[in-house]
């Protein structure tokens, strides 16, 4: 088994937290994982993108230029990475902030959700990332919602532990919408 993904957006959208949930859930299932975040000099703001590779064998390269899936949360992320998504690859796009007509791909599986609006419906706009994560889980067959549930307490910082039920609800909501 080998599966790689790029998750991208701007700082504050929670790209790193959903990537970490995926990475830790995969480790918990016994897989090898590499998690490569972008890093910069900014303390907050700026671009953020993460490469995650999951495999049942030793992983060589932690970077990939034709990923199996792409989770993009804003237009710049979409325009940057849509070209390199593997044919038949999975696109999860946050349509609230992305116009996918800028670059049309007919050879991929597209899952476009209005993540921001859906998060507001759930009562917290910060849950948009979890909606996208739910859509990824539905379409990728690598991890389940239950796999995420098992590790979410390890990944969400203790001071935010009270948000875990809302986060799980948003993941399930994204899963059902996708």
């Amino acid at each position: 088994m080998y599966y790689d993904m790029i998750m991208a957006g701007f700082g504050g959208q929670g790209i790193q937290i959903i990537s970490q949930l995926v990475a830790v859930a995969a480790i918990n299932k016994g897989y090898e994982v590499t998690y490569l975040p972008s890093y910069g000099v900014e303390k907050r703001g700026g671009r953020t993108n993460v490469f995650v590779v999951i495999s049942d064998e030793e992983i060589g390269s932690p970077i990939t230029n034709h990923p199996y899936s792409l989770i993009v949360m804003d237009q710049i992320a979409y325009d940057t990475y849509i070209h390199i998504l593997r044919p038949d690859g999975l696109l999860v796009a946050n349509e609230s902030l992305i116009d996918t007509t800028t670059h049309r791909r007919n050879d991929i599986v597209s899952c476009c959700l209005f993540c921001n609006e859906e998060a507001v419906k759930l009562g917290n706009p910060k849950l948009a990332n979890m909606i996208a994560l739910g859509a990824l889980l539905k379409n990728s067959n690598v991890l389940t919602v239950d796999d995420i549930k098992k590790v979410i307490e390890q990944v969400i910082p203790e001071r935010l532990a009270h948000t875990i039920p809302a986060n799980m609800q948003a993941i399930r909501h994204g899963y059902e919408l996708a």
Binding site: I27, E32, V33, Y35, L36, Y39, I59, P62, I63
Partner: peptide, 10 residues
Amino acid sequence: DAMVGQFQEP
């Protein structure tokens, strides 16, 4: 190199 410093693995 900074990739080895900055990336994460189990």
